[in-house]
Write a protein that binds this DNA or RNA. Structure first.
Lengths: 256, 256
DNA sequence: AACATCGTTCGGTATTATAGAACAATCAGG
DNA sequence: CCTGATTGTTCTATAATACCGAACGATGTT
């Protein structure tokens, strides 16, 4: 992680931004000061700079701070430049429309999955949005689909390095179980999340490869467990694999 | 602008991020160094820190840097917390479906408009996305709708402070012309962009008020000039005003 | 093969961020 | 209405820290 030169005050500034990623959207100077373990005046200067740059804004009523619009603006720019996202969008839409289920796309980044897009099922009422969120590799459909296709060294490293918690009774946490599961994924060409992250929720996922042949992302079709029958899984996995292959090819992948 | 304490290195770090907001998505150390007018080693340290925090990432091929995924993640969080956005979404969808035109929502921020959401017309092929972008007040529908409802002092200050360029032959730039236009907007209750920002593009816009009664945002219906007939403008403005009022009321506005 | 340009490293210097105490403003409770 | 404990903010001395210029090795170009 921490390699090379680090400018202390800049690092601190971003750690302050990180404080606002939690569940509490508004924080005061004292809150931040406590959370960071630094003096109030130090935080004050940093926060002031963040406000000037538009990355934080101050609620004039209670003097508390919250994340600023600039982050939204910059986030939009990043979004526009993610060509894999634009490229995959029509496939996601088609899959969602075809199966009337929710479709996700996740990027492999820093040994985790970052959800970068989704298309909700047409009948979705409550939207439990995941876009922008991170998720672990070992128990999500998208995570496992990517994990299975990584180099053996990287798989080992990944499974060694992180602790795994059982999110449901179905979650695999033992290293051997996961390795066996990954072997199955490689043979089938797609991964299944069998209520491993949330009870009553199943999904099918398939990996997307970049021009170097490395798994860079994955797409998934998810639905309530009752609707996701064996029959549906067969059909969905087939269409999903086809879509993932097409996207990979458009990214410059020349493989199987 | 620059009030209070400023931490130099933090300010510089964010100015570096700003360099990537332009049209060139990848920059090298030397590029940034030139653009910032600072030594390479100074930039190197700052960029390194930005990479460590995930706000920049390095392309391993050409060693160049680009905006990092962390900005996307943080942008998504900001997006989630914009309650006005969630609140207005159904109205935008309905307006778009009803008129088969594109609907935008813009926030008033720092004497400019920031587009925070849109719903494309159903038949839209090319998507010239504006979400996340800023736009001037004096010539856009959303900008004028908000501008007209600001306090006279603020209007004066705003019109004094910025230079206005005619984007099309229809753009109003003279202060007196604009003041007269704003008077008309206040009387009608909605603003019209009559090909003032792009030839062949018209739009109707109406302001949204926050709980303090101040204009905080606006929504607009836009379409090609040929489709936007007098008849359409009458109907659209009527529905638009109704929607804007409803949204304002949900934000806590208690007014006319 | 010489040259130019790139990203990166190094170390002395003094600018700059830091921390702690004091400030005014606000709020809660008696 | 006053007290007392918060809050965000300002100030200042200190020394830690970010800065710069020059040098490095690696690429790629002429």
């Amino acid at each position: 992680m921490g390699q090379g030169v680090t400018i202390q005050s800049v690092e601190r500034a971003f750690r302050i931004l990180g404080c606002f990623a939690g569940s509490i959207p508004e924080l005061g100077i004292t809150d931040i000061s406590r959370q960071m373990g630094l003096g109030k005046s130090t935080i004050y200067g940093l926060v002031n700079t963040l406000v000037q740059e538009g990355y934080l804004e101050q609620n004039p009523e209670n003097k508390c701070y919250r994340l600023g619009l600039k982050l939204f603006e910059m986030g939009c720019i990043v979004q526009e430049r993610m060509d894999i996202r634009e490229l995959a969008k029509p496939y996601l839409k088609e899959l969602s429309a075809c199966f009337k289920m929710t479709v996700h796309m996740g990027l492999y980044k820093d040994y985790e999955v970052v959800y970068i897009d989704k298309v909700d099922a047409p009948d979705t009422r409550i939207v439990y949005s995941q876009v922008g969120k991170r998720a672990p590799m070992y128990c999500t459909g998208i995570g496992k689909a990517v994990l299975a296709e990584l180099e053996q060294r990287e798989i080992e490293f990944l499974l060694e390095g992180q602790k795994r918690e059982p999110l449901t009774p179905h979650t695999l946490t033992a290293k051997d179980d996961i390795l066996r599961e990954l072997e199955g994924i490689r043979q089938r060409g797609y991964a299944i999340d069998n209520e491993e992250v949330e009870l009553g929720l199943k999904c099918v996922a398939s990996a997307i490869y970049d021009y170097q042949g490395k798994p860079a992302a994955a797409i998934s079709i998810s639905s309530s467990a009752v609707r996701m029958t064996e029959e549906q899984i067969r059909e969905a996995s087939c269409r999903l694999k086809k879509a993932a292959e097409d996207i990979s090819r458009k990214l410059g992948y020349r493989g199987s």
